[in-house]
């Protein structure tokens, strides 16, 4: 993997750490991501619980470029039961920089208060190369917290990238309390990185 591909992979790890692609009606979400390769700030607004619109500002530290992604996410299907929720989302983004970076794909998840499982399939066009990215994620809450408590999740994510021949598996830890959430992921490429989210 060349040095030019590294920021792309790092970027994908960052956006996939996003826990909730759509909020409740009328809510906004602000996210920040930073590691040695890039800084990113993503803001999205949900006019309805069925879709969200947002802008992500990216500062690519390797290529020394700054660009913005305009993102649209739509809830295709949701199944609520007393103990679980299942979701299927369509996600997309386009950048108006000279290379017209864009992506689209689907994201699905199923969770209870104890268990989480999710997948992601995405097609990415960087302007120079088109490829797919997919991952599966499993998580367990070591304890089941009540409303207002600090909640914790221990997750494992396994990802296959078209540009890489094998799967990479790495741990993700998630903590949230109130309107704030933090996810910490570790991969060989990026080492520890942090993703912060605040909903208001």
């Amino acid at each position: 993997m060349g040095i030019r591909l590294a920021p792309i992979l790092i970027f994908l790890i960052a956006i996939d750490l996003e826990a909730r692609p759509i909020s409740y009606s009328g809510a906004s979400t602000l996210m920040a991501f930073s590691d040695t390769m890039k800084n990113s700030v993503y803001y999205h607004y949900s006019p309805s619980y069925k879709y969200s619109l947002g802008v992500e500002l990216v500062r690519d530290k390797v290529q020394k470029k700054e660009y913005a992604f305009f993102r649209f996410t739509s809830l295709l299907n949701r199944k609520n039961t007393k103990r679980s929720q299942r979701n299927l989302y369509f996600q997309s983004g386009i950048s108006f920089n000279e290379s017209r970076n864009r992506f689209y794909g689907i994201h699905g998840d199923w969770e209870t208060r104890r268990w989480y499982t999710g997948f992601n399939y995405k097609k990415i066009d960087t302007g120079a190369v088109i490829y797919t990215d997919q991952f599966y994620q499993f998580g367990v809450a070591p304890y089941v917290g009540e409303y207002g408590d600090l909640h914790s999740w221990v997750m494992i994510k396994t990802r296959k990238n078209f540009l890489e021949s094998d799967w990479s598996t790495y741990p993700v830890l998630k903590f949230f309390k109130g309107n704030a959430l933090i996810e910490l992921g570790y991969s060989k490429q990026s080492h520890w990185d942090a993703h912060l989210m605040y909903r208001f």
Partner: peptide, 28 residues
């Protein structure tokens, strides 16, 4: 149904608290 996490129930509390006839909200 579907209220499986604290983070996703936050909106319910916020929505009802906007109602002046509501004095308190909690989630079980």
């Amino acid at each position: 149904k579907g209220m499986v996490c604290d983070f996703c129930a936050r909106g319910i509390e916020k929505t009802f608290k906007r109602d002046s006839d509501v004095t308190k909200v909690d989630v079980d």
